[in-house]
């Protein structure tokens, strides 16, 4: 979270709502350890990362859904799916578990 504090502060000062996604677990190989953090504001701006670029695009959509209230805060998992070559997943073959919530605490 340390590395995205300045972005959070800038967004909050501008009146934006912010969602935080953190890596909370990995099965198998994964590019970033638990604690890796990505933040998304209600204008769709992004800072930080939770993988090597594999799932960030999908996380933005989930984070916006959490901010809009169409998705509950909670754990979202992304895994590798070889029957859907272009599905969102980690190229290294692992599964990544993210906890996504609004910054309302």
């Amino acid at each position: 979270m340390r590395e995205v504090l300045d972005d959070i502060e800038r967004w909050r000062a501008a009146g934006h709502r912010v969602a935080i996604a953190r890596v909370v677990g990995l099965d198998g190989s994964g590019p970033r350890d638990p604690g890796a953090t990505m933040v998304v504001n209600d204008a769709g701006e992004v800072a930080g990362s939770v993988s090597g670029g594999c799932v960030e695009g999908a996380v933005v959509g989930e984070a916006l859904a959490v901010l809009e209230g169409t998705r509950e805060r909670g754990v979202i998992s992304f895994g590798y799916s070889d029957d859907e070559a272009f599905a969102v997943g980690l190229t290294c073959g692992g599964t990544i578990h993210l906890y996504v919530e609004p910054l309302d605490w």
């Binding site: 340390r2 504090l5 959070i8 909050r12 000062a13 009146g15 709502r17 209600d42 910054l103 605490w105």
Partner: peptide
């Protein structure tokens, strides 16, 4: 117009932020 509203109160976050800054 959520982008122009006041930021949500986040008291625990603010404690974490101050500790990180220090």
């Amino acid at each position: 117009m959520s982008g122009h509203a006041a930021p949500e109160p986040a008291p625990l976050y603010e404690v974490v932020r101050e500790s990180l800054r220090a």
